[in-house]
Nucleic acid binder design. Sequence first.
DNA 1: TAGAATTTGTTCGTATGTATG
DNA 2: CCATACATACGAACAAATTCT
Lengths: 243, 243
Amino acid sequence: MEWEKGEAIWKQIGRFLLQDITGGTYKPGEKLPTENEIAKRFQVNRHTVRSAIAALTEDNVLRVEQGRGTFVQETVLDYPLGNRTRFSQIVSGRHRLPDKHLVESKIEFANKQVLKRLMLSGKTKVIRLESVSEADGIALAYSVSYLPAVRFKGIEKIFTKTKSLTEALKQYGLEDYTRKNTRITAHMPDRRTSEFLRQSKNKPVLITESVDIDTNGLAIQFGITHFASERVQLFVENKNINF
Amino acid sequence: MEWEKGEAIWKQIGRFLLQDITGGTYKPGEKLPTENEIAKRFQVNRHTVRSAIAALTEDNVLRVEQGRGTFVQETVLDYPLGNRTRFSQIVSGRHRLPDKHLVESKIEFANKQVLKRLMLSGKTKVIRLESVSEADGIALAYSVSYLPAVRFKGIEKIFTKTKSLTEALKQYGLEDYTRKNTRITAHMPDRRTSEFLRQSKNKPVLITESVDIDTNGLAIQFGITHFASERVQLFVENKNINF
DNA sequence: TAGAATTTGTTCGTATGTATG
DNA sequence: CCATACATACGAACAAATTCT
């Protein structure tokens, strides 16, 4: 291997690695060879390789996990939290192919939390929809939604066909709805969640709880969404309104 | 132990436990006796105790951790993400006593990420402030802030005295500033962070990255805040603006 | 780092009381 | 009076997570 003079070798190695990544030799999420192997390939000391990796880590191209290896950083999806956030629109807007499939649906009595969020009371039946959202076949989120059962009877069938809650709601005459507010927490995933997201048990999930309301202010959906923290970051754009 | 007829035993046990909690026998964050011990105390089967605990967990009074025990749920602080979010105001507004103390401050050259967020370029010096935010003496967040060094020279001294960034900035003639946007992610804490937050290594942290700008649109602060996910939940209130 | 002890989670089975038609 | 369903309560055994040594 010949090195250009006048530029640090680690910088040149960094460029080589970057080419391998952009060229597709190492794909997002994939493990790079060990530092020793890379050092052998370029005929340099391991420390030189580490400098290159450190620079690429700083630039968010690589991610190093002690004891495991070096990985190509997955491109994280910026998920805006607005009052008109629609999953499919966001993903398509990023030139990625959205998909959302139903995992399970059933009708049950609402518990206290669901009742409160849907602004209901008494013994009320709700439809519980579980779904997994993907972009380019990679799982991004696992959601549980609750809708009033009387108003949206049979919505799970339409949801399965259209793969979109927005579309399904249209069939019930709901042309428009907005998000009231969103609560954000972080937790370790339970087994079910980490399996759906195909994400390590040791990586946390970002959880949003939100309520959608129709134009009359009636609650139509209470949703709990578990985002794979590895692949999604939430984003709040603050409108510059001075009160 | 005598049980009232006409009401399930587990419901009565639930009330006893709730009294112990509201009465202060078990304080927020504290561990309850084991299920077996509680069962022995009330002379019932462990399952019966579990029913009572399950109900209190549903009501967000208790929190159960497999292998560790049952704990009194800490009251979580709703932390709104708005363009005028001020830590001290939020905490005082919840009738809790805010405190924010400086851990470390130094001047260094900005790295790429900081340069980009502060909308700067070239080799620029920034002030790096590390601080821990508390409410009633309980750590809620650990923050790292970067400010342009030229403009805010010596701000760490004023910050230490006033314990508030807002106040410190006023001394530099900045009467007002707003938050541009906020990025939210979740990660496992490094050792330093989990020590500052006095939170288990196995509990995630909620991380916000945000930029504050002055009334002229100039970036004045880039901050990375690590919230104890156990004790804080973020909150986005969606303004109901129909475009 | 390997294993024991502790603690909660899950799944059997059994039995009883109560409400419903 | 009977059949059925459901909630309650107990007991035992084992699985899974965590902590400590």
